[in-house]
Simulated assay, not measured.
Amino acid sequence: MQVQQELDRRKSMKNKHSQYFSGKYALSGITVCGDCGNAYRRVHWKNRGTVWRCKSRVDKREHNCSGRTIYEKDLHEAIIKAINETVVDREDFLQQLSENINSVLTDGLTGRLEELDSKLKELESEIISLAIGGQGYDELASKILALRGE
């Protein structure tokens, strides 16, 4: 059952360019071209060693990308440098990470939350006026259910 769950998880990682998760190399699927958004692929050149190239450059039929070729050694050095900077500036990193997570979680919700707050204030004033008058609860209940999407 766990194997099936892992296979389903990997299938769900499909991106806009119809590429699937690959666990063969540590950087597969997470190294992305800044030019076209395709994933980078690991390619071994006999005369120059191992490099990472944009998928659209590797597949000759889609050669419309100007993403550069990255030597694997340089890529590893950049990752090690980033990890070391993260360890040294841990507090700054954690603060930035927290801000990024909050930004992603609230992205597009701020306007919706303000809209819901204003509707709630309107309904609250209606409840108060209906409670004073002692009538119209059914109409108010239907408005609340409509607001909730029920």
Rank of each mutant, 00 (worst) to 15 (best):
S28M: 00
I79R: 11
K73D: 11
E114K: 11
R90V: 04
R61V: 07
K55D: 09
L7I: 15
H63R: 13
R61I: 05
N47V: 06
A39K: 06
Q95H: 02
S66L: 09
V43F: 01
Q96T: 12
T110Q: 05
D107S: 09
R112E: 14
I127T: 14
Y25D: 10
G149C: 09
L7N: 04
N64C: 07
R9A: 07
S129W: 00
E91S: 13
G34L: 08
C36K: 14
D138T: 04
G111Y: 01
Q2T: 10
T31F: 14
S18H: 12
G108V: 00
E72L: 04
N100C: 04
H17F: 13
D138R: 09
E150F: 11
I80K: 14
E126H: 08
S56Y: 11
F21H: 12
Y20E: 13
G111M: 09
S125Y: 15
E122W: 07
I80A: 14
I127Y: 10
I101E: 06
R57V: 08
E77Y: 14
L140A: 10
A78E: 13
R41E: 06
N64M: 10
K60E: 11
A26D: 10
R42N: 01
K16S: 03
D59K: 07
G149H: 06
V104M: 09
L123R: 01
K81E: 09
K121G: 09
I132M: 14
R48G: 08
Y71H: 11
D8I: 12
I70T: 10
N38V: 08
E139G: 13
R42K: 15
A131Q: 10
E85L: 13
Q5D: 12
L130A: 15
K81W: 04
S18I: 02
D107C: 01
S18Q: 11
E91H: 14
L105Q: 15
C65P: 12
L113R: 15
N100S: 12
Q96S: 05
C54P: 00
N15K: 11
L116I: 11
D138C: 01
D59G: 05
T110Y: 00
D107L: 02
H76N: 10
F21M: 03
E72A: 07
N64P: 01
L147T: 02
V87S: 13
K24S: 04
L120G: 14
R90E: 06
S56K: 04
G67M: 02
I80P: 07
E115Q: 15
T110H: 03
K14Y: 00
T86W: 05
Q5R: 11
N102W: 07
L75K: 11
Y137Q: 12
G134Y: 04
D74S: 13
S28N: 08
I79M: 14
I70W: 08
H76S: 02
S142Q: 13
R9D: 08
A131E: 14
L7K: 11
Y20Q: 11
R90Y: 10
A39H: 02
D117Q: 10
N15T: 11
N84A: 06
W52E: 00
N47H: 12
K16L: 01
